[in-house]
């Protein structure tokens, strides 16, 4: 078979991932203990909301060939400040929530200023704010203070149900639809990919590159602020270590979902499939009778292997084509 033909019949990344998820669900339903239950799927959705939200807003960032390592730390800082505003400043919970999302936006704006305006590399800027925001959260609480005893109306955000579905399902769907429309259905959003392919080219084509870049980082900050609220509500406690490592889980989901780390190629639904693949994997492995005791280690290994396979598979047709010449 000629490489050209291979490229043509080579299935889309998202299709492969979807088939993989179906295989996962089938396998775990057959061999896992009580995997295919409403309660369990509710759990999977509830536990993946924060990483899902971060992965969704990470997608446009990576499409522009950027990265945001600070989202997990922003989540932690926002959680702590939300606790401060509510408990120590005595703000109404609703007002405190709005302020928290605003603070998240400010954190994002801080990244945006340095990346879009000063043209500093995103990897280094967000590596610095990754450390800065977490450090601030720890300093504010001296690492030990934890906020708890939140009002019932706020905790609803973490454990409530609307209709038959947990509140997390609604938030995630709304965010997914919003980001999907932005990236795939607006001219503004399509420019993300143009910037990822060639920032210079995009600039000479007259695209508002600076504004575009600023927007994706501010959006990430705002959504990290929102995620800090759902995280705190689900857990019932806000502490400085909230969301540690979440930036890496989010990036993993995005890349597994077929978004090219160098920018330009990728999709929001791919990211959602990436999030689902990992969440189902984590949950399912801890339900296999003989592997329960090493589930968390095993899921690390399988995630790594999957990521490598996904990257190799998507690069294979291009590699074959290049070697033909």
């Amino acid at each position: 078979m000629k490489p050209q033909q291979l490229t043509r019949i080579w299935p889309q990344h998202e299709t492969v991932l979807l088939l993989f998820i179906i295989a996962e669900v089938t396998y775990f339903s057959l061999f896992g203990r009580r995997f295919c239950t409403v309660d369990n799927f509710t759990n999977i959705v509830r536990h993946s909301l924060e990483i899902g939200l971060l992965a969704l807003v990470m997608t446009p960032i990576i499409l522009t060939a950027g990265i945001d390592l600070s989202v997990g730390s922003t989540l932690g800082l926002c959680a702590v400040l939300f606790g401060k505003l509510w408990r120590d400043a005595g703000l109404d919970p609703w007002l405190a929530q709005i302020c928290t999302i605003g603070i998240g936006g400010l954190c994002g704006a801080c990244n945006a200023l340095l990346i879009a305006q000063m043209k500093l590399p995103p990897l280094i800027v967000t590596l610095a704010t990754f450390s800065l925001f977490r450090g601030l959260a720890e300093a504010i609480t001296q690492g030990v203070d934890a906020f708890t005893d939140f009002p019932e109306s706020f905790l609803f955000l973490g454990s409530g149900q609307l209709g038959q579905l947990p509140i997390q399902a609604w938030i995630l769907s709304a965010a997914a639809i919003g980001v999907w429309l932005l990236v795939h259905r607006t001219t503004f959003g399509r420019c993300f990919r143009a910037i990822g392919f060639s920032p210079e080219g995009a600039l000479y084509a007259g695209l508002p590159v600076r504004r575009q870049l600023a927007l994706v980082y501010v959006l990430a900050g705002l959504v990290a602020g929102l995620a800090s609220l759902t995280y705190t509500a689900r857990f019932g406690t806000a502490k400085a270590d909230a969301g540690t490592g979440y930036e890496l889980f989010a990036i993993t989901a995005v890349v597994l979902g077929g978004t090219r780390i160098f920018g330009g190629v990728g999709s929001v639904h791919g990211t959602l499939l990436g999030v689902a693949t990992l969440a189902i994997l984590n949950n399912g492995l801890s339900r296999l009778p003989n592997l329960m005791n090493i589930a968390s280690e095993l899921s690390g290994i399988v995630t790594g292997v999957l990521l490598l396979l996904a990257l190799t598979a998507s690069a294979l047709p291009h590699w074959l084509k290049a070697n033909q010449k």
Partner: peptide
């Protein structure tokens, strides 16, 4: 602590 919570919630459904 958050991971501890998630594991407990999974054990309930298990």
């Amino acid at each position: 602590p958050a991971k501890q919570n998630e594991i407990i919630e999974n054990w309930i459904t298990l």
